[in-house]
Design a protein around this nucleic acid. Structure first.
Lengths: 113, 113
DNA sequence: TCGCTATTTAGATGTATGTCAACTTAGATG
DNA sequence: CATCTAAGTTGACATACATCTAAATAGCGA
């Protein structure tokens, strides 16, 4: 259901179905709070964070954070694990790599001036 | 206004402003028709396509295609050039590279188990 | 200038999305 | 069981967005 190996969209025209899938995943990422949540979780030394460590960093309500985490989770971008009272979230690097790879214009990392 | 050199969001927590910028660009891409437009233009041999070559590939109206092209253009993802009666669109690879680079989880391509 | 064609803009409409307050679920502990 | 805390769900609301039809603009050729 996820298509973990997209070829870059510059190589050949994207099919209708794949475009819908990719757009769905991208929509999950294309929101400021969700981007910061992803970044906040991913940039931790141990790669994980519990909800209580996340809610404080934003000006939106806990319910909204919970909603955004759900969106990210349903898009396959993060996963969670319960340890006692707390839930710990972790980023799924393959998912990030998939969308980054689909957008990357060329394999060689050369950046033109 | 574009911040052409994001460091990946996994490296350090994304600032509020940068998250807003990145999300804005990602929103432009996070739509099936726009993804296919991007792909259709980018995968051309000469790297460009005129509107008349694009409208036929979709089931939406010409006005809608025009709207999506405008969204992509305002996000800095494509540019256009007039030649006679027709407008030719071209992808800006740096823009794609910027968002891909911001999402890429690590420089080395190693996929953890 | 007049009309022809390619593309964009404007206004209208239905759907999707971000947000919050209030309520519920789940685990821990007395 | 009663209660406390962590996190998620529900329902409502306002805003954002994709789409269409109809009208407007911009080059080109006669």
């Amino acid at each position: 259901m996820d298509g973990s190996c997209y070829s870059p969209l510059v190589r050949e025209p994207l099919g209708e179905e794949r475009a819908r899938q990719l757009a769905g995943t991208l929509k999950a990422v294309a929101e400021p709070v969700r981007l910061r949540l992803l970044s906040l979780i991913a940039s931790r030394a141990d790669g994980e964070a519990c909800v209580c460590e996340l809610t404080g960093a934003f000006e939106v309500s806990d319910a909204t954070i919970s909603h955004h985490l759900k969106v990210l989770r349903e898009a396959g971008l993060i996963e969670r694990e319960r340890r006692g009272t707390w839930l710990y979230y972790r980023v799924r690097p393959e998912a990030l790599r998939t969308i980054a790879g689909a957008l990357m214009p060329a394999e060689d990392g050369a950046v033109p001036a």
